[in-house]
């Protein structure tokens, strides 16, 4: 239980880190501290607070939060390694550790090379992946996940992973959303955010009358928003049509719909306020929360399938693995050891 709480803390810290990173970009402070890993020659944690002014406040603050999240991730990976019995969960911890180290290095490179767009986009993209990893770890260490979201020994409701439409839809939604975030990051780091200055139209028309690379990126992001909204709404309809008795699916589905509405509103406001710092950063943060929500839904839908794969990995015969009949904690009990 404490492990799960700690994993949630790491995930929350990572979201805070994404907000801090968003503020760095939104305020144009990415190069306010020209050196790395030092800050104006100071060791990171000895940089005087009184000198954290202007853009340094955002950039150095981002570095401090990143370092803290890095240390929390080391602790989480170690904790998982020593205490977690499921091999694949332990591996998730290691993967998160590798991701956070790589993320730190990318952050350093992007500063030392004056924010090259490909590196900055990779930094933004890996941030979302790392956030997803921490959310996944928090999810799979939760009581609900271990109990298969049911206290009953016998489960009569249909298994959502058997709903092929829903299974595919949730994967497609999460994957499309991640792509959409990458396009957004590209737009952000190539300065294409206001390439189309109006909303909801584009230069007063449905389709831009002229094209440049910046306009194309901006327009793709707008189209992507529509696609994501359609996918999230389709998931919502499917869940309510077939699985409305499963709260573990209903809750994230409703939240995803609300977040999509908020996210599109924030996207519009970003354009109309000419990238106001608060709005722009809230758009980044909401995108991350929406991705995490869709991922969580996807994992819950595929819960049984994940168990089957894990059972194979642990050396159990597929035929011997009948979690519904064996009880809620069957998988943990039946593990074949490390």
């Amino acid at each position: 239980m404490w492990l799960h709480r700690f994993a949630r803390l790491v995930a929350a810290g990572t979201l805070l880190l994404i907000v801090a990173g968003g503020l760095v970009t939104s305020t144009g402070s990415g190069l306010a501290v020209p050196d790395w890993p030092t800050s104006y020659g100071y060791f990171m944690f000895s940089f005087p607070l009184s000198k954290m002014v202007g853009g340094i406040y955002y950039e150095h603050g981002h570095r401090l939060i990143a370092s803290t999240v890095g240390m929390l991730t080391i602790a989480l990976a170690a904790w998982l390694w020593w205490q977690e019995r499921r091999r694949w969960v332990r591996r998730l911890g290691v993967l998160a550790l590798v991701a956070v180290v790589l993320q730190g290095v990318l952050g350093g490179i992007t500063v030392l090379y004056f924010l090259p767009a490909p590196i900055s986009v990779a930094h933004a993209g890996l941030a979302q992946m790392f956030f997803c990893l921490t959310v996944t770890i928090a999810l799979v260490t939760s009581d609900g996940w271990r109990r298969r979201y049911s206290c009953a020994a016998t489960e009569t409701r249909p298994d959502p992973s058997g709903d092929r439409w829903l299974a595919r839809l949730t994967i497609a939604t999460s994957a499309t959303l991640y792509l959409q975030i990458l396009v957004g990051a590209t737009m952000r780091h190539t300065g294409a955010g206001l390439a189309i200055p109006d909303f909801p139209l584009s230069f007063g028309a449905l389709v831009p009358p002229r094209w440049t690379m910046a306009i194309a990126i901006n327009f793709i992001h707008r189209i992507g928003a529509v696609v994501v909204a359609v996918l999230v709404c389709s998931t919502f309809i499917r869940v309510f049509a077939r699985h409305k008795d499963r709260l573990e699916l209903v809750k994230p589905t409703v939240l995803a719909v609300l977040l999509v509405a908020a996210q599109i509103t924030l996207g519009a406001m970003t354009v109309l306020t000419k990238k106001a710092v608060e709005v722009n950063t809230a758009h980044v943060a909401t995108g991350a929360v929406l991705l995490a929500t869709c991922l969580l839904l996807t994992l819950r839908v595929h819960r049984t399938r994940l168990d089957e794969v894990a059972a194979h990995d642990q050396g159990l015969e597929p035929s011997s693995f009948t979690p519904a009949a064996a009880g809620p904690l069957a998988f943990d009990v039946r593990r074949s050891g490390r």
């Binding site: 993967l95 993209g125 992946m129 994957a175 399938r305 794969v309 894990a310 990995d313």
Partner: peptide, 19 residues
């Protein structure tokens, strides 16, 4: 071997698209 498959499934959402 299967752990790889599991990890791949978990991360397909995140890592597969990566003058």
């Amino acid at each position: 071997m299967h752990a790889r498959k599991l990890l791949a499934l978990v991360s397909v959402v995140m890592l597969g698209i990566a003058g």
